[in-house]
Design a protein around this nucleic acid. Structure first.
Length: 504
RNA sequence: CGGGGCGUAGCUUAGCUUGGUAGAGCGCGUGGUUUGGGACCACGAGGUCGCAGGUUCGAAUCCUGUCGCCCCGACCA
């Protein structure tokens, strides 16, 4: 009998379809009747709430506070920054009316607005306008704010979590007295994202700067964290922008400096979105569904009572409740161990598989035989699904955080090994093209990865490679000792290797 | 927005060429037997065949339009 996977097709067979099926199998989200928009279901939203909680704490710890700015932005605001217009104009939802009137049994828009409003694709301009009001003196700086919000970008090809017309994110917006301070802020928040990705999502990321063509519209410099997922493509998991004085000039954020001169503030913005959920799915999921890193898992442990006989049912359920209560007393990195009890009247196998698909780190079965022996059967999501350890009750309580840490570490180790195995130093144009060309062009197999190659810094070369291979520069990685060399495409001098990949 | 494909029950789909008013598997409900890894039996609910026109005595089936989804481009977190 061949081993049946919980998710079909497998990653090897059809990665994009596998991704969609994992979302369904894990009950994370579904497509809405509104094109490009998603319904985030409780398990998916709980995951987002965990991410929010951790990130919010990290933002507060770095001196930021939360605020909230309007969903609607006057059209004229977007026009203020030329590059910004260029970047976002083509994907804005526009509100033109403020009333509906009944007409022939239908509702038709009425009450035209004197100036159309756009639904925020990002909030630089409206926050900039507020900062312009708030900043008078160098003593008013810095302003360090964040907002948790939804934004709308009218995308051509939506994909659940990865690219949706509406998505949830946080956007940090800061204003500073000096360029140096703003740059420092930009880097600081990038490091927050890097830490979050590594220590919580168990995803190793490459940090670096975007090339000009990938830069945020209106930014002076865009920095990013780039992750590799299991089809070896890159995904930008977070960005941090040094905006220079572009937006403060556009919005009029001016202050009197220590010397009395009127100067424009230096601003930054930085964000991560629900795309992190998509990244997590593709980084860790397997052919049996989602795998959640314990530090962001909405629940750590599910207890599945096994009640084959009526006369032992009550005792088993009682033991399950007791174990759950004891586990909840245990603290895992500052949060109580989150325990679910699945006492639905279903077969044990069915319940087990549901939780496997949902990616819960630990499954504990407790049945009559365990009661007699004072044990439980414990399974881990990072191990083969049939593997069970029979542990004395006490060992579960004392060992649960250790097991969770092991799972967390294992996921990071796997993702890192995978990333490193598919990261190649490439020295010639020929090897580069070979690296990114699938053997089967009709139905491309998983191929490629991250290529570290020298580049002369020319946007034209980037454009050519993008046209030929759909490969782009994901980032110019930070390096203490950049190794100079020769551009593999032009033979011209290169300051350092950059990271090339196909991307989401 | 261009090129291709597809819309039949919650999901996967048969039927369409050759028009006669819809069938299956999974899932769901009830009852029972089960339950330490995706159980079984019986009964049952669920479909204006994406939508709107047209042709026809009659349309899931043929024609036109439209909407949506998927894949490939262009664009993007």
């Amino acid at each position: 009998m061949s081993e049946k996977t919980a998710v079909s097709p497998t990653r090897q067979e059809d990665f994009p379809e596998w991704y969609q099926q994992v979302i369904r199998a894990a009950d994370l989200a579904e497509n809405s009747e509104v094109r490009g928009c998603m319904v985030i279901k409780p398990w998916g939203y709980a995951l987002w709430e965990r991410m929010q909680a951790v990130l919010d704490g990290m933002f507060k710890a770095t001196g930021h506070r939360n605020a909230y700015f309007p969903l609607f932005i006057p059209l004229s605001y977007l026009e203020k920054e030329a590059a910004h217009v260029e970047g976002f104009a083509k994907e804005c939802a526009v509100v033109t009316h403020h009333r509906l009137e009944a007409k022939d049994g239908k509702l038709v828009p009425s009450g035209q607005l004197s100036e159309p409003l756009i639904v925020r694709p990002t909030s630089e301009t409206i926050i900039g306008a507020a900062y312009a009001r708030w900043v008078k003196s160098w003593r008013d700086l810095p302003i360090l704010l964040n907002q948790w919000a939804n934004v709308v970008r009218w995308e051509m090809r939506p994909r659940l979590f990865l690219r949706t017309a509406e998505f949830l994110w946080q956007e940090g917006h800061t204003a500073h007295e000096t360029s140096e301070e703003a740059v420092e802020e930009t880097m600081k928040m990038l490091r927050v994202y890097e830490t979050f990705a590594r220590d919580y999502l168990a995803i190793p990321v490459i940090t670096g700067e975007k090339s000009e063509s990938e830069r945020f519209p209106g930014a002076v410099q865009t920095y990013c964290i780039e992750a590799m997922v299991q089809d070896r493509k890159a995904i930008q998991a977070g960005t941090s922008h040094f905006l220079g004085q572009n937006f403060s000039k556009a919005s009029g954020i001016q202050f009197q400096s220590r010397s009395g001169a009127v100067e424009h503030a230096w601003t930054t913005s930085w964000g991560v979105s629900t795309r992190l959920i998509g990244t997590l799915i593709m980084a860790h999921g397997d052919d049996d569904g989602l795998i959640l890193p314990p530090r962001v898992a909405p629940a750590h442990v599910v207890i599945i009572p096994i009640t084959p006989k009526e006369d032992t049912r009550a005792a088993v359920l009682e033991a399950a409740d007791k174990l759950a209560a004891q586990l909840r007393e245990v603290s895992y990195h500052g949060v109580p161990v989150q325990v679910e009890i699945d006492s639905r009247d279903l077969g044990g196998g069915v319940k087990n598989w549901e939780w496997i698909k949902k990616g819960i780190p630990i499954r504990i079965e407790i049945g009559p035989r365990d009661l007699a022996q004072g044990t439980v059967a414990l399974s881990r999501r990072d191990r083969p699904h049939k593997e069970k350890a029979f542990l004395p009750n006490g060992d579960v309580l004392s060992g649960v955080t250790g097991i969770l840490d092991e799972i967390q570490a294992e996921l990071l180790a796997r993702a890192t090994a995978f990333r490193d195995a598919n990261l190649k130093v490439i020295e010639s144009k020929e090897d580069f093209y070979k690296f990114f060309t699938p053997a089967n062009s009709d139905k491309p197999e998983i191929h490629g990865g991250f290529a570290l190659a020298h580049w002369n810094g020319s946007a034209a070369v980037e454009e050519q490679i993008k046209n030929d291979l759909k490969v782009t520069i994901r980032c110019i990685p930070f390096s203490d000792s950049p190794e100079a060399g020769t551009c593999i495409f032009t033979g011209e001098p290169s300051k350092q290797r950059v990271v090339w990949a196909k991307s989401y």
